[in-house]
Every structure is written in structure tokens, then in C-alpha cells.
Design a binder for these strands. Structure first.
Lengths: 358, 358
DNA sequence: GCGGTTTAGCAAACCGGTTTAGCTGACCGT
DNA sequence: ACGGTCAGCTAAACCGGTTTGCTAAACCGC
């Protein structure tokens, strides 16, 4: 994969047109600095020579790349395959394109996110799912690049988008409690690499707290055995549910922190002979597009995924850190429960007493 | 979003270490050209100064970007949202990462693919779904960048991956014919922009031909009214099916050229009160991950999507055009039918009844 | 016909690295 | 003592653009 015939450079055009390099540059970027006819003459010669300015050289000279990076601790294979990320990226992409910016994905290169960040040539970064504990945030901050965070427990002093994860989770659990469920299984999102350590990714913690709130309001405590984690994918969901089942869990309702995992869990449950929602209710999180098309359609917590992406670039463009103008900007977005077909009353005989407290 | 404090440059490090810029460069890239202790000394000073070589400057000097581009005529929003593209990109990404390459998406910028190509700084291009008629292929070829094509009627003399689209389509139609279906609806993929003109994207034509072969082998002709097209998305599928229905089509079987559209069609059919597969059989194309999780699971034509992506970068890296070493390399991949739950025998009473005239 | 202001375009510096050609001094054998 | 190697490093050119003075000619009013 090596360079073929050398491209025509600006010098070639200048020579051919009998003008200076500067003139050629002006002809394209600041035509008003040149007489109208020289501009057209230069342009004609340029197209005749099939001249296209080298984007890299331009980036270097202008000290801007016209690119914003989407940084994730997960590998690109999971990113592209996960509908949540897909929709988020789509949001970023639309907003970026409107601003004439390209986007680049920054994700661990040979296992190292740090290396990937160094190699990335971007003007700004949108970091998604990066916990405050991640060392990379320090690196980025030091690099001086503007950046916003998304899906992290909002970093202190760092601009970011925050959605009401806790509230959404609360709604989800509440819904199930009202349907008479008392035996739960929570399927959580496992941090991508061991590197990120114990601290569960911000959202995981928040959602878990939300679940717990609604449960304990109904007098239910969630034991550790009633929670299982895995990678946020359909396979991850299948696997997680099977593991739980194998270790004896017999829930009537599962709370999954991602739709992908919920869909997987639904499948695993079916494979085990359970009817959804007859024997088992499932509620997901995110409300990705496909959630409407599964069988049964998935009850889930809606969050404005694409919008989140768009807002992120808006925030980034708006300057990110407003050191002076008061507190760093934080954008809040709402969540809401969308009840579809994957949830129903708890099965007879296991329904327990009518929900006492609530 | 503007530059913050100036980064430390190689000159800063050189000065601090009392050596030349070249020495610093060597210390990182060709350490064997320096004595061991100068290398460590320079490196220490560099890390002390938090020096990270500017990737753009490096690109310019080395005349390589370490990036390969994925070019598509569709907008990024549809790309990221479409599971087929997602899986394909995942394949590209894994192979690229293994080779230490980053990937960049090239898609119409303000409506112009040409402009996007010019702005992209990549070492090679993987063009997906670009018909031979697209003017962009000329542009790319002229640019001298190595490139391979995917999902296009293989361009003459252009290296590319080719899967047996026609054969796959034949299998799909054959399956339905064997189940006794005679009234079909074909849902095709519409070219992204009007610009690409009449010529249906390569794959569309091939698949359509495959469908027709199997049908005519059974004495069935597909009328123009029995085909409808739309964008390759779930919404596109819903819409396409509804349009067909509204204009009087009453098929017992649907052949969709993309799983996303198949899923949409399934949904639309249900909404119209049709049972799938009781009243209507549907077979998709691609076998994306979600096809297993829909309700019912989708019968579809499998093609090795991720593998396709991986092979594409392999081909690109292998040099793309082997001008000398014989014919340009073409990689062929197989397709096969995966029968799941969305297809069944044609409903009684319509099974073999000569179609009255709709 | 003269100082002053525009206009059109040029030369050169610059962006931040890599790479080539060449210099310097230590070490070597004789 | 001397030419020859060789290891270790440097100076300068280069990548392909942009941008900043600056100048020469044209234009201006008077």
C-alpha cells in the first residue's frame, strides 16, 4: 500500500501559472485578495493539472485538523456492532458534518488507549464512558485539547452531557415492582478492560442505585447474587443470563442496563423454555432502534441517544471549558420509560403478597 | 474549540537535552542509531517535558497517514445505524488495528462525495457499494491512492471482494418457491442519492437477477409492480412494505435485499394484521447479528460480513493493484441460506392458485 | 505632477516533524 | 605518527501547504 505517482503540489501549479505559491493558495482560500481574472486563471490551471491540496499539509500549516474524535475504552469492533454506540455516533456525525468536521474514532490501539490518543490528530475529543478514575482524562486534559465527557459520572469541572440515569433506572424498577415482581436479576455492564479497575463505569453505578431505590421503597433488597455483569452486547446478555440461571437464580424479572444485553437475555430465557413476558419480564435500557422490532418488543428506558451525540459536539464547539464564564457547562437530558411487550404481571404463584408498601 | 497552550515540540526537547532535533527523532524512531545512554537521556527529558510528537507533522514528513478510509455513498448517520455496515466496519477495524492502522469514514460532505475524498487523509481506500458508474472511482484512481471495492459489481481491473450475491439470492427465492409461494414482493435497496442515477447499485442488480432465475425456473415471472425499493434501514423496510400494500400488492412471500429492510417489513406486516410466517413469509439478506433475535428469527441469506471487511484490508495491504503479477486480485466469498422462523409454507388457498391478476 | 492610498502579487518564514549527507573524534593497526 | 574505520551525532533540506510583511504599480484628488 504505497504511494503511487507523486501528486501535483501547489508549487507545480504556481510554476505552471507563472505565479507564486502564495497566489495559488489565495486563489483557493482568499480569492478576494487577488484580481478576479488571476483567480480564475489559477483555478483553471489547477484543475487542469488535477491539483488537490494535500489535506495533511494544510492541517499542519493551519494547526487544525477539522476532525473531532470519539474516544471510547472499548474496541472498535464492539463499538460498531453495538446499536447504542451506533446511534450515538450517528448523532455526533450529523452535528459534525453540519459544522464541516470529520470524525475519528479513538479506541485502544494494541490495548493502549493512551497510545491511541497520542496518535490521533483531532481538534477536540468526545469521551464516552470514561470513568473519572481513568488515567486518560488526565492525559487529555494535559494535552490541552478541548473535550467533553458523556456517560461518565460527570467529571468535576469538566463539561459534559449528563442524562438522568438514576431516574431512568428508578422508573424501570418501579414498573416491575408495580407489576408484582419481587425476584429480580440485574444485568450490568462490565467495564471494557480490567484496567479500569473496580470502579464500575459511572452509568452502571448510577443505574444500579436507581434500581435499588425503587426496590427498597417496596421493601426489597437486591442481593449480590442477584446481579451479574458482562460486555454490553447481545452475546454478553445471553451469557450473563445463562450464568445467572446456572448458579441458581430464578427471577421473574430482569433489569438489563443495556438493550443489547436485554435482547440477549430474552433470547437466553426463551432457549431455556421461559415465556417472555409470561414467565419472565425484561426491561432494557437505552431504547435503541431495534428494541421496537424484537419479539416481543422490548420495554425499556428511553434516552435521546442521537440527541446526546449532537449535544456533545455542540458543547465541544461552544468552547468546552468556560474557565471564566462561570461554571463549566453541563447539559442535562431526560429519560423516560417506554412500556412495550416484554413486561407483564409476575406469574401467578410467585406474585407474592400484593405490593404492600408502595 | 481552539488550541490551548502550545504543545512541546521536538525543538524544545532537543534544546533541553542539548542535542539536535534529529537526535530526538532518532531516539524515538531509530534508537539503534544512537548510543544507549543518549537514547534514555533524551527519552527521559522528553517524558519530563510531556512531549508527544505531533501526528500531523509526522504524517506530512513520512508521507503516510497510517489510516485507511472506508468510503460509502451513504451518509454517516445511516452507516452507523445500519447493522450491516456496523459489522462490516467491525471487520475492517479489527484487521486495521492488527496492522496498526486507524480507520476513517469517508462519506458525502455537504452532499459531495468528491469533496469528502479530497479532504480525507488516508493511505488507502475501501470503497463499499460504489457502482462502476460512480464518477468517484475515477477520481480515486486518478488520485493514485490504492483502493479496493466491495459490494460493487466488481470493477474491471480493480481489485475487490466479491461475494456470490446472485447465488445467494437464488437460494432465497428457491426456498420460497419450494414452500409453495407464487406471489412475491421484492424489496430492493435504493441507491443512496439520486446522483447515482438509474443504475441500481451492483448488488441490487445481482440479487434481483438471482431471484428471477429461481422464479422463472418455476415458471414465475416477477412483474415490475412486484418490486419496491427504499433506503436500507428498518424504517425503509416498513415504508416499502406499506407502499406496496397500499398499491394493492398481496404477496405471500417477501424477498428483502437487506435484513434491516426485512425486519422493517416484518413489522409493517404485523401492523397490518398479517401473521409471520403464517400469512406471510419473509427472507432477508446479510444475516446480521440481530436477525437471530427478531421475532420470529429471520430466515436470511448469510454472507460473512466481518470477514469481508477483514479481507478488504488484507487485499488493500497486499498492494491492491498487482499491475505486473498477473490479473488484479479478486477475492470470492460464499453465501448460504439460513432458514429460521420467518418462512413457512404458503397459506392454504393461495398455494398454487394461479395469480388471478392480483 | 505629486504625496498618499489601494490593489495585486511576491518572497520568505513557518508549521513540526523526518531523513540524508556529512562532520567529528575515538579507536585501530602498523 | 598516520591514514582508515566506525560510532555518534549534527546541519540542513524537505514534506506541502499557509501566512505575514512588503513592494511595485495603479489610482486618487487636487
Amino acid at each position: 500500500m504505497e504511494q503511487a505517482t507523486r501528486r501535483t503540489t501547489i508549487a507545480d501549479v504556481a510554476r505552471a501559472a507563472g505565479v507564486s505559491k502564495a497566489a495559488v493558495s489565495f486563489a483557493f482560500n482568499t480569492p478576494e485578495r487577488l484580481s478576479a481574472d488571476t483567480v480564475t486563471r489559477i483555478r483553471e490551471i489547477a484543475t487542469g493539472l488535477d491539483y488537490r491540496p494535500d489535506p495533511v499539509a494544510r492541517m499542519l500549516a493551519q494547526r487544525r485538523t477539522g476532525t473531532i474524535g470519539i474516544l471510547t475504552p472499548q474496541g472498535l469492533d464492539v463499538i460498531f456492532t453495538n446499536p447504542y454506540f451506533g446511534e450515538f455516533s450517528a448523532g455526533v456525525a450529523t452535528a459534525a458534518e453540519a459544522a464541516g468536521l470529520a470524525i475519528q474514532f479513538i479506541s485502544p490501539l494494541h490495548g493502549s488507549l493512551t497510545r491511541a490518543v497520542d496518535r490521533a490528530s483531532v481538534d477536540g475529543i468526545i469521551a464516552v464512558g470514561l470513568g473519572a478514575a481513568h488515567p486518560e482524562v488526565g492525559q487529555i486534559r494535559r494535552s490541552g485539547l478541548p473535550f467533553v465527557v458523556v456517560d461518565s459520572t460527570a467529571l468535576p469541572d469538566e463539561p459534559g452531557i449528563e442524562v438522568d440515569d438514576e431516574g431512568g433506572a428508578r422508573l424501570a424498577a418501579e414498573h416491575l415492582v408495580e407489576l408484582g415482581h419481587r425476584d429480580f436479576l440485574v444485568i450490568g455492564i462490565e467495564p471494557p478492560s480490567a484496567s479500569s479497575g473496580m470502579e464500575p463505569a459511572g452509568v452502571t453505578a448510577l443505574r444500579l442505585r436507581g434500581y435499588r431505590e425503587s426496590m427498597s421503597a417496596a421493601g426489597i433488597e437486591l442481593s449480590d447474587a442477584e446481579m451479574v455483569v458482562g460486555p454490553a452486547s447481545m452475546e454478553g446478555g445471553i451469557d450473563a443470563f445463562r450464568r445467572a440461571w446456572a448458579s441458581g437464580a430464578r427471577p421473574t424479572a430482569v433489569l438489563a442496563m443495556s438493550d443489547a444485553m436485554a435482547i440477549g437475555a430474552m433470547r437466553a430465557a426463551r432457549d431455556l423454555g421461559l415465556g417472555v413476558p409470561a414467565d419472565l419480564s425484561i426491561v432494557g435500557y437505552d431504547d435503541v432502534d431495534v428494541a421496537q422490532y424484537t419479539d416481543p418488543p422490548l420495554t425499556t428506558v428511553h434516552q435521546p441517544i442521537r440527541r446526546k451525540g449532537e449535544e456533545a459536539v455542540r458543547l465541544l464547539l461552544a468552547g468546552g471549558r468556560h474557565r471564566d464564564e462561570g461554571p463549566t457547562e453541563q447539559q442535562h437530558l431526560e429519560t423516560r420509560l417506554v412500556v412495550r411487550g416484554s413486561t407483564a404481571r409476575a406469574p401467578r404463584g410467585r406474585e407474592e403478597v400484593v405490593d404492600d408498601g408502595r
